[in-house]
Deep mutational scan, measured.
Amino acid sequence: MASQGTKRSYEQMETDGERQNATEIRASVGKMIDGIGRFYIQMCTELKLSDYEGRLIQNSLTIERMVLSAFDERRNKYLEEHPSAGKDPKKTGGPIYKRVDRKWMRELVLYDKEEIRRIWRQANNGDDATAGLTHMMIWHSNLNDTTYQRTRALVRTGMDPRMCSLMQGSTLPRRSGAAGAAVKGVGTMVMELIRMIKRGINDRNFWRGENGRKTRSAYERMCNILKGKFQTAAQRAMMDQVRESRNPGNAEIEDLIFLARSALILRGSVAHKSCLPACVYGPAVASGYDFEKEGYSLVGIDPFKLLQNSQVYSLIRPNENPAHKSQLVWMACNSAAFEDLRVLSFIRGTKVSPRGKLSTRGVQIASNENMDAMESSTLELRSRYWAIRTRSGGNTNQQRASAGQISVQPAFSVQRNLPFDKPTIMAAFTGNTEGRTSDMRAEIIRMMEGAKPEEMSFQGRGVFELSDERAANPIVPSFDMSNEGSYFFGDNAEEYDN
């Protein structure tokens, strides 16, 4: 993207840094990872977990959730003011799984939030270390993106479920800051804005008074975040219109849905970061690795190297396929839920299948599930090659597409044709070009129609051997075009429920 120079890199967003050079960025990201790792080690000690239990991804998720809940100030305040039966607002906890007599047992633990905050700050040299908290939120978000298709949420806001490739980060909490905003897809931002506008339509006082002023500035800020994701002048001009509207209503909703559809071809720039579970960072720190000293990046080879040398386990339900569970977590670790499966298959070195073909449910185990038949197995999170994460949407291309997802959002900077089903997408653009945004709409449609099938995206960008740390010898991959490109292809993934 041309304006790259004016933006802070995501590592800076990730670490609240002012302008830093590459070495400083690597050190501050490393410091953040160190903090998460030290916190995780301490929690495993508190909970008396064995090494194996500490490497269980379900335990990692519970521990991450506990610290996120302990620092969720708004919710904590709300819980104190609106006490609900049987919930102690000062405590947080969740299921911890232990191996007892050759069987997995679930144990519900409860801790004072104050105590968890103390352990977290102690692991982070006394700081609140917001960057580390956001990092864990993005890992949870990436896992949700890989596990669930947001059909219901899309339909509720009037969008087409086939636009799911635009929904990265749709389950990120509001408090995820600049680093969170960077990884949100165009569809996620559109959905947040539509929800806001709908509230304004239904509630006369939404934009009024002292609160209304705050609401208005939040609305304009979200519009600017979305505008910054678009790469064409016409899309940005249309966002200006939406932002400046005196009284946002149905016309703005129409414009936003139009823009979301246009992003299936004229893709937005959305950041991709490899955020790993805390149970990967903990053992690495415990083994003596100093992330701050060595430096770390979320968008280069580092996460690949770390996963190459990590042992992570997962509980497996009786009829689940461990290899499929591994694929789910591998995609989440690489922030690749909406990437082209052919690119992923090449990088991973084994075939990556669409969601609907995987015999696996989510990673988390519900409290009512029976533990008797639970097994555990090693997650295979290694890769054959590594590639640089991208934040450009890439230019655009036609490809055989599917009944489910009709476009992709690249996660890796790797040369390819970008699949999208042009006739299906263009069919949504018939007729409606009147109104105050008509010239911009016409211009956007013209650009979409001009998108050429034979153009290559990320020209000359390749993948790298894991021994090639400096990215000196790019390998331009070859793809098996007979395979499906979309992950949520004609899909039956479970729906995400809060």
Rank of each mutant, 00 (worst) to 15 (best):
C333P: 04
S170H: 14
Y385C: 03
P474Y: 09
Q122V: 03
N125C: 14
K198S: 15
K7E: 08
D372E: 03
S345Y: 10
Y148E: 11
V280N: 12
A263T: 04
P283Q: 00
Q122C: 01
R19S: 01
K184F: 10
I406S: 15
F488E: 11
G200T: 00
S60L: 06
R162A: 01
Y385Q: 13
E494Q: 03
A218H: 09
K229F: 11
L56G: 07
P283E: 04
A427L: 15
S486N: 10
K325I: 06
G485C: 00
K452W: 05
V29Y: 09
G435D: 11
L133Q: 12
P453C: 15
E494D: 08
R102N: 15
M167N: 07
R74P: 03
N76M: 02
E375P: 07
S353H: 14
K227M: 11
R99P: 03
G450L: 00
S3M: 01
A70C: 02
Q398C: 05
L466Y: 01
Y10Q: 15
V352Y: 15
T215D: 01
A85D: 00
F71Q: 14
P303Y: 10
E220V: 14
T232N: 15
S3F: 02
G404L: 05
V299N: 10
N205S: 03
I119W: 06
R389I: 02
Y219F: 14
E244C: 08
D372I: 10
T45L: 14
A131F: 04
N395W: 14
E369V: 14
E454F: 09
F39P: 00
I194G: 13
I119G: 01
E80C: 00
F489I: 14
A22N: 00
L49R: 01
P303T: 09
Q327R: 15
S84W: 00
N473Y: 05
R74Q: 08
L166C: 07
S402M: 15
G249Y: 03
W104A: 02
T23M: 00
R221N: 13
A428Q: 00
K91D: 13
S367R: 04
K91H: 08
T378N: 02
R55D: 03
S326A: 07
P173Y: 07
A237K: 08
T437R: 06
A271S: 04
S141P: 14
R213C: 07
K184R: 04
